[in-house]
Design a protein around this nucleic acid. Structure first.
Lengths: 343, 343
DNA sequence: ATTAGCTGCTAATACGCATTAGCAGTCAAG
DNA sequence: CTTGACTGCTAATGCGTATTAGCAGCTAAT
């Protein structure tokens, strides 16, 4: 019941007839130091360690060394999939994978902040238990980001971030070029009147989609409809779509696309027969929808992996961190067809 | 660039013109101690803390106190959903929720072990970084479990576990009674010849299903077919099913059920028209299948929540831990119908 | 015989915090 | 004017490890 008190190096030392320092050296001394401890002594200590099952207390270790092989993961929304949002899981999968390879554990910053309003620097913040930290979320708190950038605490953001009093180290998806490629593809299929359903900002992720879209306009491609409000009634969007004469609609949100598609079907219209639809990004649980939308792939796992690797580099080598954008390959799908001339 | 060195209580003390001890007391002294520090001094210290943004190093805290409000989560397989397996997410959701409420952070023990073969006591066990730990996985390493049980380190398993040199504290689902209820339901619908598709063990989760099933036999209910190998060809299973004269098949694995249903449909058979099917447990991503199988519900989130709560009790009150089985309510579904008499 | 150099260790300290014992000063009661 | 109680703090210690400086004993070279 009352468990034997935890073993310390002192106990081992006593049992092996040496000093605590010697035990520590045997355990993980530098080669130069080890050279001065004869094989015989080393084996005696090892033997005691083996028979007692002693393991060094990682906390004390960290206390002495200043590192503990823990990566913090801060999310601005709950990390695990609740009903609608399992936004993070693919990232986390990649992070976990890489962390395991690099032999780090992950600290999920759950406690920081209450409910909706999560703050990295919330009172009682335990962030610093980790050697460094990954930050994910659709939208960041600018002030906090600035503080992070100016501090000495190693971190890497997942998703591109604007400078915040200095460059932010990140691994993001190249949404702008992903979007541009899709627009050009639509152009090649004869589309010239385009609709854009989604906000132009302020989150970097949406801003990048818009800038990629906007940058691909001209050259015979024209924006004839821009609905910024997400969650607008599907029928309303559909009406606007036809009113504008657009032959293809670009959706930032899969959910909007799904609803519009359903509404269209209800009216006896087909995609891409009557109009084309493109979703700007790959979405989790896309399989739920029966329609395979034309889109671009967001390499979420790879982003997680690379961000983790970068963070470890920052921690271990004092690396400054870079800004990496991963290519978002187009996903063929079945909702982008030739432009249909309508009256 | 070169950030100011990390603040310590000493720095704060110097700035506030008091001693390190006073800072610590202001931060978290017992009421009796605080009573002896006048409001004015307290405010001066608080002020410095606020302006400097100081936060106590949790590692040092744990070093001094022995606790750091961190819960470890050890999974025998990767914690986050990959394409085929997201076994853990519902548990984790519950765990995260309860941890948040109890104001603990979560440490994902990824580092231990390489690839598939995860071990709790792998290298130097880093388990102890956390105040206690939750262990999840389909199948446990018996030796490790024994070591955990005999140790003084607080842990709670998710899922029922056999004694391992002593009772294992756990929160599990009552698969045995969940299964029994479904068998009885089948009996009430006139079924008497049953098939069981799935292994009888050795994992507790499958063993419990089998024992619930086996215990409900007799009394006019008879096992006429038992296929132990998961992943058998669907057609083969189907043939065996009809050859045996069974009118209802109990599946341990949803995947098997899905494949058999598809094979049956391909032959122009319908469920439950031609035979009934029951799945022993609720499965994640069941929405993928278009058929709503009759099954029982596994209250995964609740299991996570209760296990977390139990762990916290063990940590904070030295509670010994209990063994809790949560009821698995039947899920109606649409694949269990009246027995069909066949020739 | 002194010195230098090596071997085989150990003592001492730092890490940042929590906590306890107790010191110096004031004030009131006896 | 002594005692006791109370106030407002601080010094000191411990937590378990890593690390550095250095000691004692020996050998070999000068």
């Amino acid at each position: 019941m009352a468990a034997p008190k935890r073993l310390t190096q002192h106990d081992i030392a006593k049992l092996a007839g040496v000093s605590q320092a010697t035990v520590s050296l045997v355990l993980n001394g530098a080669p130069t130091a080890l050279a001065r401890i004869p094989q015989e002594t080393r084996e005696r200590v090892q033997q005691v360690i083996r028979t007692t099952g002693y393991v060094a207390d990682p906390i004390a270790r960290r206390m002495a060394k200043g590192l503990n092989r823990i990566l913090g993961v801060f999310t601005y929304e709950p990390a695990f999939p609740s009903a609608q949002a399992d936004f993070f899981t693919p990232f986390l999968l990649g992070i976990e994978e890489e962390a395991q390879i690099q032999n780090y554990d992950l600290l999920l910053l759950t406690g920081a902040g209450v409910g909706q309003d999560r703050k990295i620097f919330a009172d009682g913040n335990r962030l610093r238990i980790a050697d460094g930290c990954l930050v994910l979320g659709r939208e960041f708190d600018r002030a906090e980001l600035t503080r992070l950038v100016s501090g000495d605490y190693p971190f890497v953001a997942i998703g591109r971030r604007e400078d915040a009093g200095g460059p932010v180290p990140y691994v993001g998806g190249d949404y702008a070029n992903g979007t541009r490629a899709l627009v050009e593809k639509a152009g090649a299929l004869g589309h010239s009147k385009l609709a854009y359903i989604g906000p132009p900002g302020p989150a970097e992720s949406t801003a990048d989609r818009w800038s990629g879209f906007d940058g691909a306009l001209g050259d015979g491609l024209e924006l004839v409809l821009h609905i910024e409000t997400a969650g607008r009634a599907a029928d309303e969007i559909l009406d606007a779509l036809f009113g504008s004469g657009a032959t293809v609609a670009f959706f930032v949100e899969l959910a909007d696309a799904v609803r519009v598609e359903a509404a269209a079907r209800a009216r006896g219209l087909s995609i891409p027969g009557d109009f084309s639809a493109v979703v700007l990004g790959s979405h989790i649980r896309a399989e739920r929808s029966h329609v395979q939308f034309t889109a671009f792939d967001i390499p979420r796992e790879e982003m997680g992996r690379q961000a983790t690797a970068m963070l470890v580099r920052r921690i271990e080598s004092g690396d400054a961190g870079q800004q990496i954008l991963l290519t978002c390959e187009p996903v063929e799908g079945e909702t982008l067809g030739p432009a249909k001339r309508r009256t």
